[in-house]
Design a protein around this nucleic acid. Sequence first.
DNA 1: ATCCTTTGTGTATCGGCCTAAACATCACCC
DNA 2: GGGTGATGTTTAGGCCGATACACAAAGGAT
Lengths: 196, 196
Amino acid sequence: MSKPINDGTYWREFEKNDITHSAAHYLMAIDALRESLGYARVTDVAEMLEVSRGAASMAISQLKKRGWVSEDPNRFLLLTEEGKQMAHLVEHNFRILSKFFEEVLGVGKDVAMSDACKMEHLMSLETGQRLVWLMRYILSDEERAAQVHQNMKSFQEGCEELPNACPLCETPDDCLASPAGSDTQQQAPEKSSKKK
Amino acid sequence: MSKPINDGTYWREFEKNDITHSAAHYLMAIDALRESLGYARVTDVAEMLEVSRGAASMAISQLKKRGWVSEDPNRFLLLTEEGKQMAHLVEHNFRILSKFFEEVLGVGKDVAMSDACKMEHLMSLETGQRLVWLMRYILSDEERAAQVHQNMKSFQEGCEELPNACPLCETPDDCLASPAGSDTQQQAPEKSSKKK
DNA sequence: ATCCTTTGTGTATCGGCCTAAACATCACCC
DNA sequence: GGGTGATGTTTAGGCCGATACACAAAGGAT
């Protein structure tokens, strides 16, 4: 029933992701510093991210190797075109996700931002764009937005209070709305050689 | 404008996450094996995840230390209550996300599953539940679902073709719908020669 | 010229996650 | 007994990302 997750096709894509969570934040820090201060040095980045200068130095030297960061003649840090694109993509994803969680789903700000920050570098461009499209659809019509918000306000757990059949559950014990799955899970394999 | 991402409050929560991507898949593999075979051994897990037996052995010994995995008297692997909960939460998140991406956003199955798999262990319980709630709202009414699908079918990039003001953009140069944010650039990072 | 602070880098170490390879068990079979 | 194969663990690596600590270079202040 739950094979596709573990069939060896998808689960390693996590590590193959284009960019690392921390790398994304180094890029975004450089970008933000150049916007606010006008320049960015290793020390500034380290300070902003609250890591040691050593850590920042090592991380940034990796980013240089990957072609995302370079230096100007005076050794100030620069983002390459590609680096800027990565930084902006991740920042963009963060804004989309946190806005979606907070303003559509009604999640509290802290959780919304925490979740968004964890996922920002993992969402594909296409999914992000489509999510924007959905949000725009929902939020562009006041009445529609109000209806969605009304629905989310009555958020509870479980399926029971929904009179008509829940469209999400293919089988009764496979309810997406109840977190634990919670079936009793059959017990031990009864000793002896079941294999062979 | 883009400070909150990097203010040192959120960005480290990624590493503080309860569970690692690979750890989640070890748990889910044990769970799935016990469901399909009725038992799970180190070798079975290694095979399912396509890792070496050594890797599986080491990973599982960590999971035992964390109290998520135990053994029955015959050394078959068991999930503890807590382990089951983690496994089910992540599996659950995967199903929610992939279904949302595919059936609401209209993302292709491959991208939907890949994105879902990357994010499954990072989404909080609350966000997941609320996402289910939203999906149920959208999909429970046929007409509403059809309208959303119709909207997603006309998915494109950019803001221009929407006559009324886009509710997502606070400032014109901060359009959530154009991936590159403010600057002149716009497409995804490298990965395939799509430009230049 | 010398001191001292700032800045950047290098080294050692750690944990996560993998491989390959050696090793230890054990069960079974003749 | 002595093979043989399957199973699990350990060890030695490698890569990555983080830390702490020490060191090097540059520049201003005296």
